[in-house]
């Protein structure tokens, strides 16, 4: 008896079983092709309610801050110890005197401030005066109850400064305008606009690493030496309270 071969044709498409197997295969292929992306996304959505929340992120941040503060304190102690070993000047946070500005002349022939702390509060001539933003000047003279501060912008006032990035020293000279001139000691200053100007870490007159300002203009071709115009970060015209840093006695 001759058995006829089963017909294989489009009838297969009409069978439900075929479509189930096809769908299953397609899903498997999709999972393999996307490397399980759908599963992972679904898993993350499921886990979302029990993931570390805002409170936990704050704990982590507080921990990080604590760690950073601790490291800063250790580094400062280390810095003080090394500075003592090298007999360098130090920035001592404990010897600060807060004072109010009682008279201001920041645009006339003399650029000066009068503050309400004097010899009675152990303010001495040459003490450094800082305001919000950084260094603003040095104490020029004192009376028992007041002190006169000569601002960095005063014509002829000169202090040592350097640019930390290039490690080049210069003399910051007041020109009467709001922007003093940093006259470099090297022929090649390497300074760029935006560089931060600070007091030298090796200075014996000023506390180290005090912010002074930011370089606005550089003139490399100037003679006898290049210079930069510095925008001060502390504005004496807007400061009502200052801090006098006492020198190490």
């Amino acid at each position: 008896m001759i058995q006829t071969r089963r017909k294989i044709g489009f009838e297969l498409l009409l069978k439900r079983r075929f479509w189930v197997i096809f769908l299953f295969g397609a899903i498997l292929f999709g999972i393999r092709w996307t490397k399980g992306a759908g599963y992972l996304d679904f898993y993350s959505v499921l886990l979302k309610p029990i993931l570390p929340g805002t409170a936990q992120s704050e704990w982590i941040k507080a921990g990080e801050d604590f760690d950073k503060n601790l490291r800063l304190k250790l580094l400062e102690e280390d810095n003080i110890r090394l500075r003592k070993a090298l007999s360098l000047n130090q920035l001592n946070n404990e010897q600060r005197i807060s004072a109010a500005v009682i008279s201001r002349s920041s645009k006339s022939w003399w650029h000066q401030l009068e503050i309400n702390k004097g010899a009675k509060d152990r303010v001495l001539k040459g003490n450094t005066v800082i305001g919000p933003g950084g260094l603003i000047g040095l104490v020029d003279s004192t009376t028992p109850l007041t002190s006169r501060v000569r601002l960095l912008t005063d014509p002829g006032h000169q202090v040592g400064a350097w640019i930390e990035r290039t490690k080049r020293h210069g003399i910051l000279t007041g020109m009467g305008t709001n922007r003093p001139k940093l006259i470099f000691l090297n022929k090649d200053s390497l300074a760029k606009v935006g560089d931060a100007v600070t007091t030298s870490p090796a200075s014996s007159l000023l506390p180290p690493n005090l912010t002074i300002g930011v370089v606005q203009v550089v003139n490399e071709k100037a003679l006898p030496s290049p210079y930069a115009i510095v925008q001060l970060t502390a504005s004496p015209e807007a400061i009502d309270w200052v801090q006098v840093l006492k020198n190490n006695e």
Partner: peptide
Amino acid sequence: FLRNNWFHSWSLYV
């Protein structure tokens, strides 16, 4: 340093 440039903007301004 003021001798390099006699007519400074600051002096004239004041």
